[in-house]
């Protein structure tokens, strides 16, 4: 059996380890809630993590282009980008997969049998982490953009009245549309 086969066979256990490790970045009371509450609307953070991590794992296993995993990465990163963690803590979750795999497959990974495949997989995880950081930065920049856009939106008519806005081709701060409207 190759490494992919091994990973597929132990998917549930690896995912559980990975999920638990990610949850350790939250206080104990919280991680317990995130782990046990299954309803996706009552526990959207836990649900997003569970689904997102599984999709990332499957994608890595199938060797898909990292960019195609953007939606799954986004569903996790977008949350962690506003949860007050230092960037290093918020973005550690892809790397924790390495620990989960090595922990779960410890006997099998002894020796050199899978070293080539493991190096390739860990490189893919690194690439995933770098891509995650791109999304993280987009989210952070969005937060600051929202602050600026909102102040404009809240006083839009006042600005219009003071003739401080004019007709341009572009995005309307009030509607987010890209029609030929006022700005």
């Amino acid at each position: 059996m190759d490494l992919k086969g091994l990973l597929a066979a132990k998917k549930d256990a690896i995912l559980r380890k990975w999920f638990d490790a990610v949850l350790e970045s939250y206080p104990a009371d919280t991680s317990n809630f995130l782990k046990t509450k299954k309803n996706r609307f009552a526990n959207p953070v836990g649900y997003s993590l569970t689904k997102g991590l599984e999709a990332l794992f499957d994608g890595l296993l199938q060797g898909v282009e990292i960019e195609t995993l953007s939606p799954s990465l986004d569903s996790i990163v977008r949350i962690r980008a506003v949860q007050g963690m230092a960037p290093s803590k918020a973005m550690i979750f892809p790397f924790l997969l390495k620990n989960a795999i090595r922990g779960e497959l410890e006997p099998e990974l002894r020796g050199d049998r899978f070293s080539g495949e493991m190096t390739a997989l860990e490189s893919a995880i690194d690439a995933l982490a770098l891509h995650a950081f791109n999304i993280y930065m987009q989210c952070r920049e969005k937060i600051y953009a929202l602050q600026a856009e909102e102040s404009q939106r809240l006083t839009y008519r006042l600005l219009q009245k003071a003739k401080m806005v004019c007709e341009v081709q572009g995005e309307d701060p009030g509607t987010g549309s890209s029609k030929d409207t006022k700005k």
């Binding site: 490790a21 350790e24 970045s25 939250y26 206080p27 104990a28 980008a81 506003v82 007050g84 963690m85 230092a86 960037p87 290093s88 803590k89 550690i92 952070r140």
Partner: peptide
């Protein structure tokens, strides 16, 4: 977002367990 305070050599030693 919390301020980034960890030194580079501390990054690999982050204990995530609160």
């Amino acid at each position: 977002m919390a301020k980034f305070t960890a030194k580079p050599n501390e990054l690999s030693k982050i204990n995530l367990t609160p």
